[in-house]
Amino acid sequence: MAANPNINFRDLMILIADPSPYLCMLVHGILRGFGANKVIEVKHSFGVLETLIGQRVDILLCDAKLPPHGGLSLTRAIRRNTENENRTMPILIMTSDTREAAIKTARDVGANMVVAKPMSPASLYDRLAWVAFNPRQFVDSETYFGPDRRFKIEGYPGGVGRRKGDKVVEVAEEVGPALAQDDIDSLFSAARTGQN
């Protein structure tokens, strides 16, 4: 197993986009704990677009339902905008809607990864590490621009693995279509043979 890689967060320009000021503050605090020193918070998609026009952003953490356009539409728009130098930046979608269809939609609009809310520092860190240490090709086609959706997870960096502990809400007889973080990751991990 490879040595546990550290993420160097210093000087990374991180944009958090979420309508909840408290959640923004919380994620900001978590990132500060990771060592980040350049974090911007916005509450709506106009704020994201203004920020992207004005400066280079290294990674976007975006709520799936970010008003008014929705984080998924915003992601598609960013990926489709050939004029914007940020169009290939990593985008992590933060969502509480973990139904399979919602996760697949996030993947299909060009998100790099989905992290389930409520999130823990570990779940956020591991997905950021995955994006940092597992670069993926980009695909540019008539219907899609974004990270190659046909990739394979061979374990998170540094032997972190796919952690059972990521499951946030555990109810004994949980039924229904909601997916745990492991299942969400799996949807981003269809092997090159073309699953999903």
Binding site: P5, N6, N8, I59, F133, F138, D148
Partner: peptide, 19 residues
């Protein structure tokens, strides 16, 4: 479809020594 590899600034900076 056209495929290409991009090393983003995020990846480059995140993988620097330190942290």
């Amino acid at each position: 479809a056209r495929t290409f590899f991009v090393e983003t600034r995020f990846q480059r900076l995140a993988r620097r020594p330190g942290g």
